[in-house]
């Protein structure tokens, strides 16, 4: 499956490489757009030393970790949110006549390598934060785990939103509240949000496990909302549960697909 993914992605990359100037421009602009969010964090901390009890470098750490997860998902999976576009254009049928899972075909469809720039930007921010924060060595193993967990959670979330488009063909932008909303939510320590909202994104939609819970472990801090220590390690389980839900939703979506035309 991975090799097939790479093969499909490579074909689109080659197609994109036919227009090198446009490719370079879009890569740079992608980096600039995401850097705006960093600029906002820096401006906020030009006015204060702590935000909800977190320092600038701690916030950059949380931002960077979620940023890498999100940018990887944006690069590798986010094309799944074009379901309704394909249904409306009548091109969705094509994915269903191939001997490969429709999910794999959709995520690679028009694979866009210039989003790699955003991954790079987030890696730099994360790298900076890890370098300047005085982190305990025995906690560092969690960083790769949280980045992968975060990626899987975002990917599952994206798939759920894609699956929902089989029903909500005319309102695909409703899903943005969850996908891009999830991105925005995870850019800051959850300590800034209200308790009920944080409960929701911990126990219902497990966005808290993208960077918040495991991040608290890496930073060696207690949860201001007082959740117990073992919650820091539940990320992979939460991701797995969300993946199962997304897989089921996707299958149901395909079964309820009603094609178009006569």
């Amino acid at each position: 499956m991975v090799s097939l993914y790479a093969r499909l992605a490579w074909t689109w990359t080659r197609a994109a490489a036919a227009y090198p100037a446009s490719f370079a421009l879009m890569t740079v602009l992608g980096i600039i757009t995401t850097t705006l969010d960093v600029a906002v964090i820096l401006i906020v901390f030009a006015n204060t030393t702590t935000l909800a009890g977190f320092s600038r470098d701690e916030v950059l750490f949380l931002y960077g970790a979620a940023g890498v997860s999100f940018a990887l998902c944006d690069l590798l999976v986010s094309n799944i949110d074009r379901v309704s576009q394909h249904i409306k254009a009548g091109t969705f049928d094509t994915f269903l006549i191939r001997p490969v899972s429709s999910w794999l075909q959709l995520t690679t469809d028009r694979f866009n390598p210039n989003r790699l720039g955003r991954v790079l930007q987030a890696v730099l921010v994360l790298g900076y934060a890890v370098a300047v924060l005085d982190l305990e060595g025995r906690r560092l193993w969690m960083i790769p785990v949280m980045v992968v967990t975060g990626f899987v959670i975002f990917a599952a979330l994206w798939t759920l939103v894609g699956a929902a488009q089989f029903l909500l063909t005319d309102a695909p932008e409703l899903g943005n509240a969850f996908t891009y909303g999830g991105q925005q939510l995870t850019q800051y320590p959850l300590a800034v949000y209200a308790r009920d909202l944080v409960k929701g994104v911990t126990y219902v939609l497990p966005m808290a496990f993208v960077n918040w819970q495991p991040g608290l472990y890496v930073l060696g801090r207690d949860d201001p909302f007082g959740t117990p220590e073992f919650m820091r390690f539940l990320g992979p389980a939460a991701a797995l549960a969300l993946v199962l839900a997304a897989g089921l939703a996707w299958r149901q979506g395909i079964r309820h697909y009603r094609s178009t035309g006569s």
Partner: peptide, 11 residues
């Protein structure tokens, strides 16, 4: 077309 799409498993 509905028949054909059932034959391919699309519907």
């Amino acid at each position: 077309s509905t028949t054909i799409k059932m034959l391919c498993g699309i519907l």
